[in-house]
């Protein structure tokens, strides 16, 4: 997605990337990034937490107004209430075989 942001920005449209992977974002350097230290899939907080969703979206849009430095990363204040890890499901053997055929 960082690459998509870079290409869209190069085409003349400002972008903000709402990241939950700070190290990946720091490598790819989208034009503007807003980092949420939350599990992947909770970029705007938890289910039903309308106030947090709205607060983060406002901050994301404000970054588009305020950013001056290309490649900037702004860190949100959110503290996720429980520890979390990266644990994607393992592909099934059928899925691996399908991918290898491509």
């Amino acid at each position: 997605m960082g690459l998509v942001c870079r290409a869209v920005e190069e085409a003349g449209i400002p972008t903000v990337c709402v990241s939950t992977g700070r190290d990946i974002t720091a490598l790819v350097r989208p034009p503007r990034s807003y980092f949420i230290n939350a599990p992947m899939g909770n970029n705007f907080g938890g289910a039903g937490d309308v106030a947090t969703q709205r607060r983060i979206l406002r901050a994301v849009l404000a970054l588009a107004v305020e950013a001056r430095e290309p490649g900037c990363i702004v860190d949100d204040v959110l503290q996720w209430p429980v520890p979390f890890a990266f644990n994607p499901a393992l592909p099934t053997p059928e899925a691996i075989a399908r991918q290898l055929r491509k």
Binding site: M1, G2, V4, C5, A7, V8, A11, G12, I13, P14, T15, V16, C17, V18, S19, T20, G21, P30, M40, G41, N43, V60, L61, A64
Partner: peptide, 19 residues
């Protein structure tokens, strides 16, 4: 190609949300 479609829609700001 996506950027061209965004311009057709007169988009001023684009928010990308990776997962």
């Amino acid at each position: 190609a996506l950027a061209r479609e965004l311009k057709r829609d007169r988009v001023d700001l684009f928010v990308a949300i990776p997962a």
